[in-house]
Design a protein around this nucleic acid. Structure first.
Lengths: 335, 335
DNA sequence: GGGACTCTCCAAAACGTTTTGGAAGATGTC
DNA sequence: GACATCTTCCAAAACGTTTTGGAGAGTCCC
């Protein structure tokens, strides 16, 4: 491909001038600039990314490490998040790179490689935990990153998170408002921050109504949800509503209820969280809630760009309201 | 971070020797090599990616352009594909970068930027069309790429594809074997290669049984499937089985059947293709088939690496058998 | 003891860009 | 005409790596 040198020699100018003309510096005559621009256009000139990166010391890319449990399904949410992130980052000339790593030490090694090898300008950390080794390490390195979800790790960094506590409080209140009294929570593993927040919201609503909480914790997938729901629904005081920490847990709960011959929503109401694409097509369609994901991705991208540019992380933190999606898996309890 | 120069001066060696010691060249004494390696380890040395890329002229990255229709759901399949690709590419020191682009001219512009700016060493093209402008252009540029899915564009390039024709032939035969006679196909838009292949398989099976095909074409999502199924199921000679080009079409078909008060599978059997995560949790669980996606991603990655290394594309083409997943949405027709 | 090898090592060039620190010429001021 | 000030341009350095084309020292063989 054409380089600056080619352009310079064909125009009878120096490399410096060509470079500065294209970059919009004021110390090049307007007539020269237009000549240069025309020549660059004609030659199809594109600056060599590696050269510019080497010189400028920045990579113009941002990375998301995708947690991939072997054999487990991966959240479809991430695709939409990636699309939104990529679109916003492109506007600022950044590329989005993706690395897959199984959670644990392997994941940490991936972060080290990225940060120490200066392979990226910033990171997007997802699936945050209350005690998150990735975040601790990144804070230590003072490396720019943004998280989707909060954590208990002390320190200032940008994040976007849904207001899970408020959402689950309101979701529970809605069920109580329908007349339910025995509302159970199927929580996600408490190592994840979001699990605790949602549980707290649920507890607050139950406490405010003077009702005892009915809780259990499940693996955050269909299998876990199914097991937990089978257990809950077999209790003597069978819950009439199941509030599930995630949609995938709710899918499992739907299956468990059907397996027990229960009608949904007549015998038991089910509520999820995430509004996965499939949730509109379960039977019955799942009542759920969502953090608008395209918006979240855009916000994450903007925060990361700002953080890279040096903005104080304290102003780059946003807890977003969760939107309710009413469908057919909830109703007043029978009788 | 530590650079080669730092290491060299602290060891009293030249940059050349340090570089060659780390790269495993034979012209450095074993004792020197171990000294260098120890020092590199201690200093946490990582080669600067931009510098090495500039020098070697390759980017050590591979890119997938993610087609993102605005407002439309994105196939959850891609997440698993990305995970598999990333894992395999990492083994060869390649990074996987992801760019989101809406299909059409915007997408082509993205490809131009990538290829002309030498921003990537190879591309993974998905969602192939029978006449695919991206593939035509890439072939013209003689740029390394691999596709998931075939196309009618002439020319040699690596691809992986499921044997959709054989799969749909067999799927149809299975339904016929259950006693169905009026098996209908809900196809995907014929611009996509896979749609034609699956349709051909279906037609072959029906022809072999001496039965007239019942076909329609739907948008490849739940909405399209629902509309098409509503139309088919309202016909006087109502089909007793719906063979759907994709799982998402099948979800729509399930919904349509329920809306018409039909029982699945007693009144109508439904079959999909893709085995999306949600398909095990529809009601009833969907009979479908799949191209094992982790395996496919790994194969795609290997082919692309081989193509970049100069292997003849003719030997890098694979049509994989499709695996059947029998669930509860199929049964013999009533009566 | 001289030539041919082998074993280690290294100086310097190259990749293509951005940026520094002027320089040459034109213009304005007194 | 001397001096300062703009305007426009450029040579050279720098980023950190890989690779080329040797050089020097030791060993072996005759």
């Amino acid at each position: 491909m054409a380089t600056l040198k080619d352009l310079a020699s064909s125009l009878g100018l120096s490399i410096t001038t060509v470079s500065r003309a294209l970059d919009g510096y004021s110390d090049v005559a307007e007539s020269t600039r237009s000549r240069v621009k025309a020549a660059a256009e004609a030659a199809g000139y594109r600056p060599n990314a590696a050269a510019r990166r080497l010189r400028k010391g920045s990579t113009e890319m941002v990375t998301m490490v995708l947690p991939t449990e072997p054999g487990q399904f991966n959240e479809p949410l991430y695709i939409e998040l990636l699309a939104a992130l990529g679109k916003r980052l492109a506007r600022d000339g950044y590329d989005l790179t993706l690395l897959a790593a199984p959670p644990g030490t392997e994941e940490l090694k991936t972060y080290r490689r990225l940060v120490e090898g200066r392979r990226t300008d910033g990171l997007i950390v997802v699936r945050t935990r209350r005690d998150d080794a990735r975040i601790r390490w990144l804070l230590e390195q003072d490396f720019p990153f943004v998280t989707m979800g909060r954590t208990d790790v002390p320190g200032a960094f940008p994040f976007v998170d849904g207001d899970g506590a408020a959402a689950f409080r309101e979701a529970c209140e809605r069920l109580l408002g329908l007349g339910h009294r025995r509302v159970a929570l199927i929580g996600a593993p408490s190592a994840f921050t979001f699990a605790g927040l949602r549980r707290d919201g649920y507890r607050a609503a139950m406490a405010a109504a003077g009702l005892p909480p009915i809780e259990c914790e499940a693996a955050a997938d269909e299998e876990g949800g199914c097991e937990a729901a089978l257990d809950l629904l077999a209790r003597p005081d069978r819950p009439t509503a199941l509030l599930c920490a995630t949609d995938r847990i709710a899918y499992g709960a739907l299956r468990a209820a059907r397996r027990l011959g229960l009608e949904i929503p007549a015998d038991v109401s089910v509520v999820g969280h995430d509004n996965l694409p499939a949730s509109a097509f379960t039977d019955p369609p799942l009542t759920t809630m969502e953090l608008p994901i395209a918006e979240t991705g855009e916000l994450l991208a903007e925060m990361l760009l700002a953080r890279i540019a040096g903005t104080d992380p304290h102003v780059l933190q946003s807890i977003r309201p969760v939107r309710f999606v009413d469908r057919a898996s909830t109703a007043p309890p029978r009788g």
